[in-house]
Every structure is written in structure tokens, then in C-alpha cells.
Design a protein around this nucleic acid. Structure first.
Length: 474
DNA sequence: GCATGATCATGC
DNA sequence: GCATGATCATGC
């Protein structure tokens, strides 16, 4: 005879209420010391929660953990920074089955069947503790708001279309906005076959980017009550795309520093993705000079160097002083590019400083450079006309192709090796490589940074060659 | 015309 | 005080 469960397994609310008893506690606090014997390993927290706390055995992969309630349990670590708690890593969902995931439409896909209603249990990671001692800081049911789900569905479709084109091996996390396809496997050699090409592809899982999770975290601590109302999804998941009032929107928030481009799901035209919508907003302004744009958009006359970014934000309907919410969640990088009348770039594109003492300890996959270069980019291109005035030429979204990322790796390895060898005179130059170079960037030549060997060296940074950018945008 | 070293201006 | 986006200056 089975013992009755301490919660109603058919009710999401009941499951959530039972889960919340763990708030600000650890599993060890609640279950006592005897469980310490059974669970020692790292990464076993999710499993321990399922078996010992919720008292069910992990079930089939294609259904949610709590089948009857349709709830999927997701644990994920938080870390402490000065301004509070943020996500420590991306949230990883199911492994993408390249052979099956493309067979169904989104609403019947493995991903959506399993993950439409999440029970989020975020805990504070602590390197000094074992899993069972981690304190749970956020426990809540979670559904994607309509505006976000629209983007997630488009992301899913983008990943699926790459599989269907036989390009699973070319998938990059930077292809999509909120829902990523992150690598998942013991190492880079964890390859698997794909249905429409003989090329082996890296194993990947659906995931949410850390930046996206930070929005959930911030809203949770801001005291927002997340609404759960799955009926509202029908309109987003339907085929007609005739969006109406959304019933699963966030309540109005006072998060001061972001503003969304899409104020309502009704802003979309039929069949349009978020990126299409952004392109549409910009295309109306192509050919206008900087002066005209500043006047039309009501931007205060300024010589500030960031005025191009102010113009771009204004076109997207984001007010001064605010960050673009969708770009933040998607961890996307906006770069403005200025062209001469001839079409050549005025300058190469610079990135962050090389932290000499850090790079030597990095591995490629957790390096600054890999994590930057695999993001999605948004380029805003201005070009000088015959009178020397800058005109808005075009905008585009871009992700570095996978074969160029291989070059990025060699470039990064070369740089790391030279720093290890204490050689600061022979970094890769613009004339050495098609895509990348290292160059100084500092206040002046006396602006120095300490090296691993304890000397001081001029500050340098990563650059993308002007010629490469030119080829990318044309 | 481009590569390369150097520096400016702003905002956090 | 410093990192970053932007730009200048020089020489080949």
C-alpha cells in the first residue's frame, strides 16, 4: 500500500505550495541528516528533490515531471553579486532529438509538451557547500508571458529549420533570442547524427539564457505575482497569428532601466518575427540623415558620441535612459557602424580589454571571447552621403558563422599562448588574419595593466577587422 | 587607403 | 577611477 503524497499531484498550486516549504531552507534542513549518506555527488540536487522531497521516481523524458499537473520541475543556481542575486548559469531543458523534434509543430513538440508550465526552484550556489545544503531562494510556478512566448516559439522554429536544412552542425547559441540551443555533452567531441545530413553535429539542448533568467529573478524579488493561465496561450500557438488581448502578460512593472520594443502582442503583423518587426521599424527611416532623424524623433541635439545608439533606440520606441528589454533578455549586442561615402568602414570594431591575468586561466568555452563572439549582434549602419552627412543606411541581425568561430578559437589560443609566454610584441595584427586582431586601447600609452608575470603592459583589446565587417554587412 | 599605435569623451 | 565606444595621427 502506497503512502499518500503530501501534495495533490494533479494540482500545480498544491505542488507549488508544498515546494514553497523549502523557501530559505535546504533539503538537508527539511529532510534531516540521514539523506546525506545516500546523496553525495554534485549535480544531484534535482534528482534528490524529485525522489526524496516530492517522492516520485524520475519518469519518461517526453512528459513533464508531474505528469497529471503538467508541471516540469527546474532547479537552477543563483550567485551573489553586489546588487543582489543573479543567475549563475543558463537553464537547460531537454536534449534536442534531431531526429524527432522537427516532426511536430511547436505546440505538440517535445519541448513544449514538457516545459509549458515550470516549477522554478532557484538556489544559492556556494562552492563551500554540498548540493543538499544549498538554500532555495526562489520557488514559483512560471509560465512565459505572451510577448516572450512569441519570441520563444520563433526561436524554436529557427532551430528546427536549421535541422531540416541539414545544418544541425551549424547551430549556434547566438542564432536565437531567448530560447537557445546550448551544447550539452561531456565535451566538444560529443557528436551525434542528424537526419538531413551525413555531417555529425554537436549534441545540444534547449536552454534559457542567464540574462533572460535574470528578468524572472528580478521580477520575483520585486514582489511580482506571476499569473498562471494557460488558456491565454492558444492565441500565440494558433496558426492564424491574429493576436488579441493577451491574458498572460506581466503585470505592469516599474523596473526602471528597461523598456520593451514590443509593447503589446498586437504590434506584430501576421507571420512577423521580432526581428522582422524591428527591421520594419527601421526601414521607414532608411536614407534619412542624422539631423533629420534627430529632429523627427525628438532627440535633444547632442554631440555625444553615443548619439547613434540614441537614434536607434528612439526608432525602436525605447526612451532615453532605458535599455532595450528584448535585447537585454536575449543578451544581444547592438553595434553602430559608420561607413564612408565609398562604402569603406571608418574603423574596425572594438570589444573589451584583454584581462591578461584572467585569460591564461580560461578555457575556450568559458572565455570572454567565445561568449562574446557567439552572441547575436544587431548592426545599425550609417553611411556618409555626397555632402558628408551621415544617413541611416540599413540595419541587420547577425550571428558569426560557425566556421569563423573556429578561426576565433585559433586567434584566442594564439593570444593566450603569447600572454603565457610573456610575449606582448607579436599579437595577431589586422594584416595577419582575415577576421580578428589585437590592438591597444587605453587612455594613453602610459595606461598599463599587470601581467601574469608581474610586469606592467599597455592595455589591449579584441577587434574585428574593418574589412571583415564590411563583407558581413554587404 | 589601410594598418597600427594612440588617445578622447562619456557614463557608471 | 576606469572601461568602453568612438576616433585621431602617422606612416607605409
Amino acid at each position: 500500500m502506497e503512502k499518500p503524497l503530501p501534495y495533490d499531484k494533479t494540482s500545480p498550486k498544491s505542488i507549488e505550495a508544498y515546494a514553497k516549504k523549502l523557501l530559505n531552507k535546504s533539503l538537508y534542513d527539511v529532510l534531516g541528516s540521514e539523506i546525506k549518506q545516500t546523496y553525495k555527488g554534485k549535480g544531484k540536487l534535482g534528482q534528490a528533490l524529485e525522489e526524496l522531497y516530492f517522492q516520485y521516481m524520475p519518469n519518461s523524458k517526453s512528459e513533464p515531471d508531474f505528469v497529471e499537473a503538467g508541471v516540469e520541475l527546474k532547479t537552477s543556481p543563483l550567485k551573489k553579486i553586489t546588487r543582489g542575486l543573479v543567475s549563475k548559469e543558463r537553464l537547460v531543458f531537454n536534449i534536442i532529438d534531431y531526429k524527432k523534434e522537427h516532426l511536430q509543430e511547436f505546440r505538440k513538440s517535445n519541448f513544449w509538451r514538457k516545459n509549458h508550465l515550470l516549477l522554478l526552484m532557484f538556489f544559492l550556489h556556494d562552492a563551500e557547500k554540498i548540493d543538499l545544503e544549498y538554500l532555495f531562494k526562489i520557488i514559483t510556478l512560471w509560465e512565459f508571458p505572451a510577448e516572450d512566448l512569441k519570441i520563444i516559439k520563433d526561436d524554436w522554429e529557427k532551430i528546427i529549420s536549421k535541422i531540416k536544412e541539414g545544418k544541425a552542425h551549424e547551430i549556434s547559441e547566438g542564432d536565437t533570442l531567448y530560447l537557445g540551443a546550448c551544447t550539452k555533452g561531456a565535451n566538444r567531441e560529443s557528436l551525434t547524427s542528424q537526419p538531413f545530413s551525413s555531417v555529425m553535429a554537436m549534441q545540444r539542448a534547449f536552454s534559457l539564457k542567464s540574462k533572460y533568467l535574470n528578468f524572472i529573478i528580478e521580477k520575483y524579488f520585486a514582489g511580482e505575482k506571476f499569473k498562471i493561465n494557460q488558456k491565454g496561450y492558444d492565441k500565440i500557438l494558433g496558426d492564424d497569428y491574429s493576436f488579441h488581448e493577451s491574458s498572460v502578460r506581466y503585470q505592469k512593472l516599474d523596473l526602471e532601466d528597461v523598456e520593451p520594443v514590443v509593447k503589446s502582442i498586437k504590434d506584430y503583423r501576421q507571420g512577423e518575427t521580432f526581428e522582422d518587426l524591428v527591421l520594419r521599424r527601421f526601414s521607414k527611416h532608411y536614407g534619412k540623415t542624422e539631423k533629420v532623424l534627430i529632429k523627427e524623433l525628438g532627440i535633444k541635439e547632442t554631440n555625444a558620441k553615443h548619439k547613434y545608439s540614441l537614434i536607434a533606440k528612439a526608432i525602436m520606441g525605447v526612451r532615453k535612459g532605458k535599455e532595450i528589454e528584448e535585447f537585454e533578455k536575449a543578451d544581444m549586442i547592438m553595434k553602430t557602424i559608420r561607413l564612408e561615402n565609398s562604402g569603406t568602414l571608418k574603423e574596425s570594431m572594438s570589444f573589451a580589454q584583454i584581462k591578461f591575468k584572467e585569460i591564461i586561466h580560461e578555457s575556450w568555452e568559458d572565455s570572454y571571447w567565445f561568449n562574446t563572439i557567439t552572441k547575436r549582434f544587431f548592426f545599425v549602419v550609417f553611411q556618409k552621403n555626397e555632402n558628408g552627412e551621415l544617413e541611416l543606411k540599413k540595419v541587420m541581425f547577425w550571428t558569426m558563422p560557425y566556421y569563423d568561430i573556429e578561426t576565433a578559437k585559433k586567434f584566442w589560443e594564439d593570444t593566450k599562448k603569447k600572454i603565457k609566454n610573456d610575449d606582448y610584441q607579436h599579437f595577431i595584427k589586422a594584416s595577419d588574419d582575415r577576421i580578428f586582431h589585437i590592438r591597444p586601447k587605453a587612455i594613453n600609452s602610459k595606461d598599463l595593466m599587470e601581467t601574469p608575470s608581474g610586469r606592467m603592459e599597455k592595455k589591449k583589446c579584441y577587434w574585428l577587422n574593418a574589412l571583415y565587417i564590411k563583407q558581413v554587412i554587404s
